[in-house]
């Protein structure tokens, strides 16, 4: 009984660390991107480094894709996520970041970490070299 419960505890820990790692990776990406976003605007207009609604939406998309990874479902989830993000972006803060972050979250959810890192770097570079008023 004791070893059976320890086995399940081990499995829980493995899954928990996986979730935390994914969220940690997304968190770092969102913070870095938000920092780059803030570089393009005046200090007085800068917003928080961690836009929580954006991060939580991305995290939800990542976890969904981790779970539903077979067949056409991932494509449907990504399409829905990006469309919803597009709608939310029109009313929330960090308007220009919603769709890029959703794409990043999708890559992370699909386990394409290299693409995730490259896209994050690309987004950062674009944000650093573009003026804030154009966003």
């Amino acid at each position: 009984m004791r070893s059976e419960s320890a086995r399940w505890t081990g499995t829980l820990l493995h899954g928990w660390v996986e979730v935390l790692t994914l969220l940690g990776m997304l968190l770092v990406a969102v913070v870095l991107i938000a920092w780059c976003w803030n570089r393009g605007v005046r200090p007085s207009d800068r917003q928080g480094l961690l836009p929580w609604p954006l991060f939580l939406s991305g995290a939800a998309l990542t976890l969904l894709l981790r779970h539903f990874d077979q067949g056409l479902l991932p494509a449907v989830i990504i399409a829905a996520g990006v469309m919803i993000a597009g709608v939310i972006a029109r009313v929330g803060t960090h308007r220009g970041l919603w769709i890029p972050v959703m794409l990043l979250a999708s890559l992370l959810g699909l386990g394409l970490n290299l693409s995730f890192v490259l896209l994050m770097l690309l987004i950062m570079i674009v944000l650093l070299i573009s003026a804030g008023r154009d966003r």
């Binding site: 899954g15 394409l112 290299l114 995730f116």
Partner: peptide, 20 residues
């Protein structure tokens, strides 16, 4: 035991996805 499981999970999530 907790550290070993956690490290295995962390590395699986971060490193394995780099192979594309």
């Amino acid at each position: 035991r907790a550290v070993r499981i956690a490290v295995a999970s962390f590395l699986t999530t971060t490193v394995d996805g780099l192979a594309e």
